[in-house]
Each structure stands twice: as structure tokens, then as C-alpha cells.
Computed example of a mutant assay.
Amino acid sequence: MPAKENSEKRAEENIRLAFFLNLIFTIIEFIGGFYTGSLAIIADAVHDMGDSFSLGLSWIFEHIAKEGRTERYSYGLKRLSLLSALINAVVLIIGSVFILSQAIPRLFVPGEPNAAGMFILAIFGVIINGAAAYRVYGGKSLNEKLVTWHLLEDFFGWMAVLIVSTIMYFWNLPVLDPILSIIITIFIFYNVVRNLKEVLVIFLQGVPREVSVTEVESALNNIQDITDVHDIHIWSLDGEHHIITLHVVIDKNCTFNDINRIKCSVKRTAKRLGIDHATIEIEKEGELCEMTEDEEY
């Protein structure tokens, strides 16, 4: 099996495993959260519910995306992962607002959570999320990287619950539970908004943050026989596969073989700068270009 296909199969298997682990533990969290009366655990359960939804979509979309391009979808369906991220962000934002609305009043009238029950759940949370994060750690696909981040987030969140439940077991400080739930929720909300911003940039065909248009333009202008490049558009298909379209002006004396050499050099340079797919329009010096500076695209 080719390395790329093997990597895609591994990514799908890892995301599937993470989905089932997350889903099972989310159910346990909700039951345990209501049983112990811990808002911090319920807050994390809401977060994990969003993660489970996202992981489920990611697993399905990872499988569908392997089918490649079709007559209707010439770029394939890799952007489904962005749709998954967008839906997940909305779910988590709604969940975060709900948890904050419940946690803030509890700062003034804290409940009495079951510290021993919280401690036991925290042990399971650390083990399960730690094992799942270890399984997907080092994945190459964008989905695997996002899944790893979510699982590590959960792992450290449960470490916090473990510490707080231990403190509450020895000291009567029930206010620590709503404080922890607010901290977890704000942390989640911050990362969701940050990820949502990246998703919107991709949907709006913004230049990927790891790619510099100036650097690309400079590198291309250094290729032999290229006198100018213009009308450069760089965007990302799914946050992982980047695309460039551009006009390349070459020396008017270039032969057909020179043009082939230049196109290959442009594609190699683009690949080196993190761009997977290049569409090039060649123009010779003095040739009229339909794309003028006053056009909007």
C-alpha cells in the first residue's frame, strides 16, 4: 500500500477510535456530573459533546474525502472538514454560554459537589483522554492534529478537576467547582473563537498564514527567464492543501522547451513554499494581459 494511502487509512482509524472513546466518556461525564453535582464536570461534558459531534463528522468526512474529485466537485470534498469545524464551533459556543449562565450565579451560592465522585471521574478522564491523545499524537492530517489538540485539552482539564477535587475532599471549598467550570469554559471559548476565525479565513479564500505572498513573488522572480509575476492568488482548500494561480511573464525569446522548464520550476518553488497545486498562465514580454491593475480579482 502506498505511503499516502496508508497515512489516510491510519488517520481515519485514529479519528474513529477517538470518536468512540470520546462519545462513551461524554455519556459517563453527564451521568457523573449530575450525580456528583459538579458544574465543572458538566461543563467539560458539554465540551466533550461538541468534540464527539466534531469527531463523528471528521471520521465520516475523512472517509468521504478519500473518494477524490468528481464531475460536480472538481476539487473533491476535502472542504467537508471545514464544515465540520464550523458546526462544532457553533455547538461549543452555545454550550459555553449555557455553562457560564449556570456557573456565575453559583459563585455567590455554591452547591456542594461530591468531591470523592469528582476524583474518581477525574482519574478515568485522565486515563481515557491521555490514551486517546497518545494514539493520535504525531498524525499528519489536519483532522488528526485538531483531534490531538482537543484530546490534550481534555486531558489537562481533567488534571485540573483531579487537583480541585482533591483540595475539596480535605477542605470545604465548594466555590472552587464553579470557578473551575468558568476557567474551563473561558479557555474553551477562546480556542473555539480562534479556530473559528481560521475557518472563516479559509472559507473567504484568504492567504494561509504560513504562506507569504511577498516571499512567493520574490522566489518566483528569481527563476531564470521570468521577468515578472502578477495576478497572484493564494488560498487553501482545507487548511492543509494550498493552491496558487498566477500570471508569469517570461523573456520574449523563450522557446517551447524553456516554457516547460519554467513551469516546472514554478511548481517546484511553490511546493517548497508549502503550496501543493499551481495553475500558471504564461505571457511573453510585450503581450497584452487582460488582467489590469484596476480589476478587483
Rank of each mutant, 00 (worst) to 15 (best):
A3T: 09
A3H: 07
A3E: 14
K4C: 09
K4S: 13
N6P: 00
N6H: 07
S7F: 13
S7N: 15
E8A: 14
K9S: 05
K9E: 09
K9T: 14
A11K: 07
A11T: 06
A11S: 15
E12H: 14
E12L: 11
E12G: 13
N14M: 11
N14R: 03
I15H: 04
L17M: 08
L17H: 07
L17G: 13
L17F: 13
A18N: 05
A18V: 14
F19K: 03
F20T: 08
F20H: 05
L21D: 00
N22C: 12
L23P: 04
L23H: 06
I24M: 08
I24R: 00
I24F: 06
F25C: 05
T26C: 04
T26D: 03
I27F: 10
I28T: 11
I28R: 00
E29K: 11
E29H: 02
E29V: 00
I31L: 09
G32C: 14
G32Y: 10
F34K: 05
Y35N: 03
Y35P: 05
Y35Q: 14
Y35A: 13
T36K: 01
T36P: 11
G37R: 11
G37F: 10
G37A: 11
S38G: 13
S38R: 06
S38N: 01
A40S: 11
I41L: 14
I42M: 05
A43I: 07
D44R: 08
D44G: 02
D44C: 12
D44P: 01
A45Y: 12
A45E: 01
A45V: 01
A45S: 09
A45D: 02
A45T: 00
V46G: 04
V46Q: 01
V46I: 12
H47Q: 11
H47A: 04
H47E: 07
H47R: 01
D48P: 02
D48M: 15
M49N: 07
M49H: 04
D51N: 09
D51M: 02
S52L: 01
S52H: 01
F53V: 06
S54N: 11
L55F: 12
G56M: 00
L57R: 10
L57M: 13
S58L: 11
W59R: 08
I60A: 10
F61D: 04
E62R: 12
E62I: 06
H63R: 15
H63P: 06
I64E: 08
A65I: 04
K66N: 07
T70G: 15
T70W: 05
E71T: 07
Y73F: 15
Y73H: 13
Y73A: 03
S74A: 12
S74R: 15
S74M: 02
Y75G: 01
G76C: 06
G76V: 02
G76I: 03
G76T: 10
L77I: 06
L77R: 06
K78F: 14
K78D: 15
R79M: 10
L80A: 07
L80G: 07
L80T: 00
S81T: 14
L82R: 09
L83R: 03
L83T: 05
L83N: 02
L83Q: 04
S84H: 07
S84P: 02
S84V: 11
L86K: 11
L86C: 00
I87S: 14
N88F: 13
N88L: 10
N88R: 08
A89T: 11
A89I: 02
V90Y: 12
V91M: 08
V91F: 15
I93T: 14
I94G: 09
I94F: 08
S96F: 10
V97R: 09
F98G: 03
I99T: 15
L100C: 04
